[in-house]
């Protein structure tokens, strides 16, 4: 029986297995949608939360030193968007984070598809690689984060390679299961893998990429937080050292937005490529 794309394991945690045959929706991407009639309630819930924030700030219930109010946060956002903080604007931080994310997903994704196709279609390769695969995907990638401190390879690429490693395992496992799930390949050797096979594996690949992106935001922010000057994680930490908590809130909102955007983009791109 083919393990589903979400079986077994996790790289830094984040994939969930379900029995084969049932809906294979990774936990980390959330559950099924609520019926449209109930949307209003959801909007009300988020609205209530925002209203609570506004009102508590307006009435001075919450000390602005403890939680910056909406107005202060908006002002901080404006400053970050125009002048920047420590001479770096929000957009530069965002662009840096997005670039790292894109590189990590791209490099890890391509390598993952190649490895997944090879493992899935060749019994020999599978028997050699499988045991190591099984062990390494259990190691939490965030735990490998301190590798950033150990100097190997060019420094700016270390975080990207960690992101790529996370992506690699998630994508490779998904593609392997996709290929294995279609039964033995005719000839069952890697050289029979053609463009059509790759194309058929695209939906599984992009679903895996979305999962990988969700996991990678964690790794990315942690990595930037501990050792970089640019990127949303770095922005959070700089803001903390200067007691600029409004900037932290801006970064959190930016993360909400940008992670949703990346997820949306990956979904659209996957749909489009798969035709």
């Amino acid at each position: 029986m083919a393990e589903s794309a979400v079986d077994g394991g996790n790289v830094s945690g984040g994939l969930v297995d379900r029995p084969a045959g049932s809906r294979a929706v990774p936990l980390i991407l959330g559950g099924e949608a609520v019926s449209s009639g109930n949307r209003l309630l959801g909007v009300a819930g988020v609205g209530a939360m925002l209203a609570l924030w506004v009102v508590s700030a307006q009435l001075g219930i919450v000390d602005p030193e403890v939680l910056p109010g909406p107005r202060a946060t908006a002002e901080d956002f404006w400053q970050l968007a125009t002048d920047g903080f420590q001479r770096v604007t929000l957009w530069e931080h965002l662009a840096m984070s997005l670039m790292r994310m894109a590189l990590g997903l791209g490099l890890g994704g391509v390598a993952g598809v190649v490895a997944g196709l090879a493992i899935g279609s060749s019994r020999t390769i599978r028997s050699i690689v499988q045991p190591a695969f099984g062990f390494f995907r259990l190691v939490p990638v965030l735990g490998l984060l301190p590798l950033i401190f150990v100097r190997f390879g060019p420094g700016s690429m270390r975080l990207v390679s960690l992101l790529a490693v996370t992506t690699f395992f998630i994508v490779a496992i998904a593609v392997r299961d996709h290929v294995a799930g279609r039964g033995p390949m005719p000839g069952s050797s890697a050289d029979r893998v053609d463009l059509r096979t790759v194309r058929q594996a695209l939906p599984a690949t992009f679903l895996a990429l979305r999962v990988a992106a969700a996991v990678n935001w964690n790794v990315l922010v942690a990595g930037e937080l501990i050792s970089f000057q640019k990127g949303l994680g770095a922005m959070i930490w700089t803001a903390r050292t200067f007691f600029q908590y409004g900037f932290v809130l801006v970064a959190i909102f930016a993360l909400v937005g940008v992670s949703a955007l990346v997820d949306f983009a990956l979904r659209r791109l996957g749909d489009w490529l798969a035709g």
Partner: peptide
């Protein structure tokens, strides 16, 4: 989707 670490400050 927000990394828990972002809340640490």
């Amino acid at each position: 989707p927000v990394p828990p670490l972002a809340f640490i400050p």
